[in-house]
Design a protein around this nucleic acid. Structure first.
Lengths: 220, 220
DNA sequence: GAAGTATGTAACTAGTTAGTTACTTTGTTT
DNA sequence: AAACAAAGTAACTAACTAGTTACATACTTC
């Protein structure tokens, strides 16, 4: 669905508001198209058309294709930054903390396909553009999750030989890969990976793996 | 390093051999450049120049940019197919089997950066091109690793509630992410992620996670 | 309500890019 | 060695694409 229909500027609007709406429409369309096709695969004309705006104004607001791309990254990374700030706070029970953080992260990814794809493109871009944006946002989430892990170790719930950086990377990987590699996996699994049932099954698998691994343990 | 220097066709070579060499040089250069920049980011002219060959011949041998890309995928997927055939055979000890398979896969990725990047691009392409190649190769590896997991369950070493498809995806994710997200992680970790020490540390972390998870267990 | 400024449009430009064509060189076969 | 075919070259084309320019419209402010 194109962006145009839902919010073309009305004639009576104030100038500032219309401009604000134009900027927002461009950002939404750019998010959609950059996420779908990457920086190289996307066309400025397509973004402008999808946003229902003239190319002239797109350049007026965002300067260049690359600048727009960086803005898109900033805009989307901000979402997960906000998520971390709200949902990653430390409660008493370590298992509870880790579970909540992973669940929050997992369902955030499930609902933000653009985000998943944007960070995947960026990984392939070797973080060339994300580097301009990440220092402000990303490590904050990582650090907050890192605190949860470190707290779990201190309370002797998590094994002390676990490097929290490795754990963070692993949790990210386990969550991301499910969405990231969805289209590759789908034909082999023959199931709708985004159904409520399958999402929950994946989350439970991740939690089981993170907490206990695949091996039979006598206790629990 | 360009491909040209090492193997420009010698004047005395037979026609067939020169042609074979040209095809190979194109495939190597294309692998390098497609892996680096993706399908959209790569230029045919750049590939031709790197291969030290005229564009005319590139089209003569491979037809079109997309066809060449598919050939590159086929060529590289074949490597891991060969790997699976040799290294994923079933021994007696389930833990041993899983360990060997993961170690083999992990170090294969460590040594085949192009492969890592190509499958990552393909995930973002929604498997559009890999789909033409995967049926022959990829699921074979997956199935062989699947057999190892299923065997482990039968022997009561692996928990019976583990879905082997989820386990495969998780192992892939844990290995891939380390290389895939290397450049993003590097500035935060401040270490050379490809050093022998760090590679082995990551592998040990993956094995620990897969077998036992992060939680303290009394036995072992 | 006039002047000024932000928003918007369409046509254009200069450079790029996948793919082609007309032609040359070189190895092979008889 | 002549005839043929495969390998190779350089210049070209048509379509595309990021970014610009000259011009028009409409809101705001004085």
């Amino acid at each position: 669905m194109s962006n145009t229909e839902k919010s073309m500027p009305k004639k009576g609007d104030g100038r500032e508001q219309r401009s604000e709406e134009s900027r927002a429409r461009i950002l939404n369309s750019a998010t959609k198209i950059f996420a779908e096709k990457g920086l190289d695969g996307s066309r400025i004309d397509e973004i402008a058309e999808d946003a229902g705006i003239n190319k002239r104004m797109l350049y007026h607001y965002y300067g260049s294709k690359e600048d727009l791309y960086v803005e898109v990254l900033r805009y989307n990374y901000h979402k997960i930054y906000a998520l971390g700030k709200n949902a990653f706070n430390l409660g008493y029970d370590p298992k509870e903390n880790v579970t909540r953080a992973i669940r929050t992260y997992f369902y955030f990814l499930a609902e933000n396909d653009s985000f998943v794809r944007l960070i995947s493109w960026e990984a392939l871009n070797r973080g060339r553009y994300a580097g301009k944006v990440i220092p402000q946002f990303f490590d904050l989430v990582e650090l907050e999750f890192g605190d949860i892990i470190k707290d779990g170790i201190k309370r002797k719930y998590i094994r002390p030989d676990m490097d929290f950086r490795q754990v963070i990377l692993s949790v990210q990987a386990l969550c991301l890969a499910y969405f990231n590699r969805r289209e590759i996996v789908q034909p082999l699994w023959q199931e709708d990976l985004l159904s409520e049932k399958m999402l929950e099954a994946r989350l439970q698998h991740i939690l089981a793996l993170i907490f206990n691994g695949i091996v039979c343990h006598k206790e629990e």
